[in-house]
Each structure stands twice: as C-alpha cells, then as structure tokens.
C-alpha cells in the first residue's frame, strides 16, 4: 500500500545509510563541508575540461580567490542572520550607504574631508547602527525580518544616493587601493582579509557563548528562550554585527575601485544569498557556519568565472545563479521545520 514516493525515499535512505557506514562515508561525515568540497570539485572538473585546463591555471585560481573576497565578506555577514533563522535583505542598502560615506569622508575630489584610517571604525559604526535598527525592528516591533530589512534597504539606498547626489566620487587617497590590490606570498591580500574574517567568525560561532546561543535560537527560538537564552539581545547583536561587516565590505568596494557611488551596492544580495545556500547554510536556521559561507562563495565565484572563461554570454550569469540558488535551497531546506512554506 506504500506509495511510490515513500518507497523511493526509503531506498534513498537505505543507500544513504550504506554509504555512511563505509570508510569513505565516515570521512565524508567527519568533514562538515564535504558535500560542498565535492561540488567545487565537480565545478572545477567541468570547467577545466571546458577551458582546456585554463580554469585550473594558478593565475586563474588567484583571480578567482581575489574576486571571491568581497562576496565572501558579504556572505559571511548575511549567513550569521540566516543561522538565526531570520533573513536580511538590507545588504545592498547598507553597503551603498557605507560606500558613499567612505567616499565622502576619505580624501576625495568633492569634499574637503580626510579622515584617513579612522574610516574603518566609521564605516563599521554606520553599518552597525543600520544593522541594529534591523534587529530592533525584528525583536522590539516584532516585524518579520525579511520585510523590515527590505524596507531598510530601500530607505538606505535612497539616502546613499541623496548624499552622493547620484554621482560617483573619485578618491584621492591611494593607500587603500594599494593594500587591496597587493599580494602576499602570491595570494591577493583582500582574500587573506576575507579568510581572516571567516576565522574570527568561526571562533565566535564555536568558542563563545554568543555563538552557541545563536545556534540555539536558529534551532528553536521558543525552546532557546525557555532554556534562558536572551533571544532579543542576541538577535540584535547579530544583526548589528552583520551590519558592521557590510560596512567593511562597502569600504573594500570603494578601495578597490578607488571611487565611490551608491550603485556599488547594486546586485550584491543575489550572489551572497546564492553563496549562503550553496555553502549549505540552511535557510530554516541553526545549521551551517563560517566555513560553509567561505566555500559557498568560492563555488559561486568559480562557477561565474568558469562561464566567463568559456565565453558564455555574461548575462547568462544571473540565470545560472538563479537556478543554482533555487536548487541549493531545494536540497538544503528543512521543510518539517518551516512547516508551511510561504
């Protein structure tokens, strides 16, 4: 009397438990991101065949790493909120406003400002404040995060364009760009920065109370609250922290291009979300971490880079990302936990 579907599922589970029992399976399960590493391998294999090995050339690998740095930082930011089981769509707005602020406060050709290195704490403060507002809207006004952050994104993007008067602001301070485009032992410095940030977040997630509690909230907010987790405080802190990291990414964007404009925030959310999903951070919350964000970004950037090398129409990229995003979520989301899918 069993339906075809349930039988198929049973077979799948049986196969899965067989695989798990083998040595390969044990190895697979001992590494938290092994599935993602295999995906990366497949991407690499396909493109290295497709490009006659050009894809795996060391210079291209470094290009991919360099390109993945800023998306990686953004992904590291947004995945924190997703671990909570919430959503943050304010990425583009916050990046826009911090990018424009950095442009206007560093030595530039529009204003007389020059705050020098102070810009780092300043952008983090601006981003952090915006993130804090996100957190407050979600916890204190009890608004669903995906709509409140969407509203925040529009609001901040508008403000960014207003204060930049809609034009781009060339920088006159070359120090930042120098750091960004430099290399250390042949590896792009900006990538090393991203990895360092990933490391800090990894330690935060695994070695501190904040990290443990963040996963508890993502697992089940009500139970976490019962156990004594200060849910509101932690959610606000994580939204704030996420905002601070957006701020850093905004600054890096400005530094890399040596100019600033509100539109630098455009089209960043989509790849970051794709990277989160591909990396295996579950949108239902509580599963996945910094490692997943790092590998997820590398997969997405490698995929896009491969398409470019294979000279596929560049506008295909967002279609590919869209398909990858939907399929990755389809595979990772815990439908029992979400209950009703809206």
């Amino acid at each position: 009397m069993k339906t075809k579907n349930s039988r198929r599922l049973e077979n799948l589970f049986a196969l899965r438990s067989k695989v798990s029992a083998s040595i390969v399976g044990k190895l697979y399960h001992s590494i938290p991101i092994s599935g993602q590493i295999i995906s990366l391998g497949i991407v690499a294999l396909i493109f290295s065949v497709g490009t006659n090995g050009q894809f795996l050339h060391i210079s291209n690998i470094m290009t991919v790493l360099g390109l993945s740095a800023i998306p990686m930082i953004l992904c590291l930011a947004v995945h924190q909120v997703i671990i909570l089981g919430a959503m943050d769509l304010s990425l583009e707005g916050i990046v826009a406003i911090t990018a424009v602020s950095a442009g206007l406060l560093l030595k530039n050709s529009v204003t007389a400002n020059d705050v020098g290195l102070w810009i780092i704490p300043i952008v983090m403060l601006i981003g952090g404040l915006a993130g804090l507002v996100n957190g407050l809207l979600n916890t204190k006004l009890r608004m669903p995060s995906f709509i409140s952050t969407l509203g925040m994104s529009w609001t901040l993007f508008g403000v960014a364009i207003m204060i930049s008067k809609g034009s781009s602001i060339p920088l006159r301070d070359l120090r930042f760009q120098k750091v960004i485009i430099s290399e250390f032992l042949g590896i792009p410095t900006v990538f090393i920065l991203a990895i360092l940030l990933g490391l800090v977040l990894y330690i935060m997630q695994n070695k501190t109370k904040l990290g443990k509690h963040m996963y508890a909230i993502g697992g089940n907010e009500i139970l976490a609250k019962q156990a004594g987790v200060k849910v509101d405080r932690i959610k606000i802190s994580i939204f704030g922290l996420t905002g601070m990291i957006y701020g850093l990414a905004g600054l890096l964007l400005v530094a890399r291009l040596n100019s600033s404009a509100a539109r630098y925030g455009n089209n960043l959310l989509f790849p970051a979300m794709t990277a989160v999903a591909v990396g295996g951070v579950s949108l239902s919350g509580g599963v996945g971490g910094a490692l997943n964000a790092v590998i997820g970004t590398i997969i997405v950037v490698a995929l896009n880079n491969g398409l470019v090398l294979m000279q596929i129409n560049p506008y295909m990229q967002s279609a590919v990302n869209g398909i990858v995003l939907i399929s990755a979520v389809a595979l990772t989301i815990d439908r029992n936990k979400i209950g009703i899918i809206k």
């Binding site: 989509f270 949108l283 295909m316 967002s318 990302n321 398909i323 939907i326 979520v329 989301i333 899918i341």
Partner: peptide, 19 residues
C-alpha cells in the same frame, strides 16, 4: 518543490532578467 516564495522569486527574477 516547497521552496519559500521569496527565494523562488529572488532566483527566478534573475533568470527572467537573463532571458
């Protein structure tokens, strides 16, 4: 596929624009 609509449509928006 039981994927939340905001992910589905965020993804498909990209696909439609690409087309």
């Amino acid at each position: 596929l039981r994927i939340p609509s905001f992910i589905t449509t965020l993804g498909s928006n990209g696909i439609f624009m690409s087309i």
